[in-house]
């Protein structure tokens, strides 16, 4: 068989392997995205839907260049965006603070305990997200577990405002996303070569110096990976603020949902969604840049 037909066959194989997934992603992922992108530049229809004319004021409403003849700039949207950003970042920080020390503890356990702990971490995935969130409602609500307990102990005289607060949203997000942070962080912690830590101490570094100069840099890929995995879905999260935030705390996910389902302003909802995606893409880009830099085999030997 000649080389050409071999290459042709390889190409055919490649097409056979990548073809179905490409078609699937193209139809069910890329196409809706393109539709959203186009809608975000169209005018809203009176009773929902879109009017086919170029209409940049959706973005103007959020970013502040709206023509008052069409739309008003309202800083509240940007405020919600910043608020969501803050909540997502706080979620990342809290999950990291919980998972990082835990990863070290679990990595040190004997093999079968490690496996058991990893099983425990992934256990929540076996139950529906909604069910788990409603259990938090039962725990946090005015007549819920915590308030009942505290009141029957006489520690408080009237129920605390636990649910429908930003704190409740944070709690829910942290609760949901801990596995997403833990697994990448654990993977990088478990990989640490402890002779490197010994080498650092041997060369005169104390525990704190060893942490900053050796342990942290070696686990940074896991930390960044986990942060991205937690940050992105937290930023656009819809279920947690809907269940635990009530009507008091609005996050981007809920705002977008309202535009589509309540306000019937599809283009504006699409514009909001596009901005969220742009923010996430910028972050991902920075992350990829960092990763390729640290893993760069630049000028190889020979």
């Amino acid at each position: 068989m000649s080389a050409l037909t071999l290459r042709a066959r390889q190409r055919l194989q490649l097409a056979g392997l990548l073809g179905p997934v490409t078609v699937f992603l193209g139809i069910f992922f890329l196409t809706p995205l393109v539709i959203m992108l186009i809608y975000s530049f169209l005018a809203p229809g009176l009773y929902g839907g879109v009017v086919w004319e170029f209409y940049p004021h959706n973005f103007g409403r959020i970013l502040g260049f709206a023509d008052p003849a069409f739309e008003y700039f309202d800083p509240v949207y940007f405020q919600i965006f910043l608020n969501s950003l803050r909540i997502a970042l706080t979620t990342v920080v809290i999950t990291l603070l919980v998972c990082y020390p835990a990863a070290f503890q679990i990595a040190r356990l004997p093999e079968r305990w490690k496996t058991f702990c990893l099983f425990l971490i992934t256990l929540p995935f076996f139950a529906s997200l909604i069910v788990r969130l409603f259990i938090w409602v039962l725990i946090l609500k005015q007549t819920g577990f915590i308030n009942q307990t505290l009141m029957s102990l006489g520690l408080i005289s009237e129920p605390l405002d636990l649910i429908y607060t930003e704190g409740a949203i944070l709690l829910g997000l942290v609760y949901i996303f801990i596995p997403f942070m833990f697994l990448p962080v654990y993977a990088s912690v478990e990989k640490i070569d402890w002779t490197l830590v010994r080498a650092s101490q041997d060369l005169g570094a104390n525990g704190i110096q060893t942490f900053w100069r050796v342990i942290l840099p070696l686990t940074l890929p896991g930390i960044l990976g986990g942060s991205i995995l937690v940050f992105i879905p937290s930023l656009g999260n819809f279920v947690v603020p809907a269940v635990l935030g009530g009507a008091k705390v609005l996050m981007l996910g809920n705002l977008i949902e309202q535009q589509f389902l309540a306000a019937r302003n599809w283009p504006f909802g699409a514009a909001l969604a596009m901005l969220v995606m742009a923010a996430v893409l910028v972050l991902l880009f920075l992350y990829v840049r960092f990763e390729s830099k640290s893993g760069d085999d630049a000028p190889l030997l020979n």
Binding site: D193, T195, L196, A199, S200, V214, P217, L218
Partner: peptide, 9 residues
């Protein structure tokens, strides 16, 4: 060290 233990980063 036996395996050199150079800091890879």
């Amino acid at each position: 060290f036996q395996n050199y233990a150079l800091f890879p980063h």
